[in-house]
Amino acid sequence: MERKELDVLHILEENGRVPIPTLAKMIDATEEEVTAIIKKLENDHVILSYSAVIDWSKVKEVETVTAMIDVKVTPQRGVGFDEVAERIYRFPEVKALYLMSGAYDLSVVIEGKTMSEVARFVSEKLSTIDTVLSTTTHFQLKKYKHDGVVFKKDEDDKRIVVTP
């Protein structure tokens, strides 16, 4: 991969909304070159999607529960973990799925409207897959940083600390 392509990837990963003219100046290329690079990276499935990081805790009308589920599975002969991973990531509740090293094989991130909905997903969908041996569910309580973006409080406390 060429240096300019790598530069474009790093910049877009940090901010997918950088205008083409600005991106061209940042990598010392023409706008046409940048457009061609982006098109090539999209066609080659290097760039898969553009997304925004949203602090949903500030949108009271939309409350969800996020859970990280550690899953121990029996790999299948000839396909390893891929077949069971594909069955799991097809569920609409699944937002992310990773093959892991360590005590568990897969890490599944899901979202639901309530803890009960997450529990039903685990008990009725995930645990019923024949190759799933065990699950451990962890509920997300607060998000501090996601995809390199730090979630900050609205305002710092400006009061003076008073001690006796």
Rank of each mutant, 00 (worst) to 15 (best):
V149Q: 11
R90G: 05
M100K: 15
D130G: 05
T30Q: 09
G148F: 07
T35N: 12
D156F: 06
A52T: 00
E117N: 09
V161R: 10
F151W: 05
T30P: 10
A29Q: 08
V59P: 04
S107P: 00
I20H: 04
L23Y: 05
E31I: 00
T114W: 04
E42T: 09
I20E: 06
T128C: 07
A29V: 13
K145P: 10
V65H: 07
P164D: 09
V65T: 10
M26Q: 12
Q140T: 15
Y104I: 01
L41S: 07
R120M: 07
G78R: 08
V94A: 08
V18H: 06
E33P: 02
V18T: 15
A24W: 06
V18P: 08
E61L: 10
V118E: 03
I20Q: 04
I69C: 02
E117Y: 02
P92I: 01
K125Y: 11
V53S: 10
W56P: 01
T137L: 07
V18Y: 05
F121N: 02
G80E: 07
T136W: 08
V162R: 07
T137P: 01
R77L: 14
K125W: 02
V53K: 12
E13Y: 05
L12H: 02
G148T: 06
K58M: 13
L106C: 11
L23Q: 04
H138Y: 15
K153Y: 09
V94M: 09
K72F: 06
V162C: 05
L9T: 01
I20D: 04
N15S: 11
D130C: 00
F91G: 07
T163M: 11
F151Y: 12
V149P: 01
A119W: 03
E155T: 07
T163P: 00
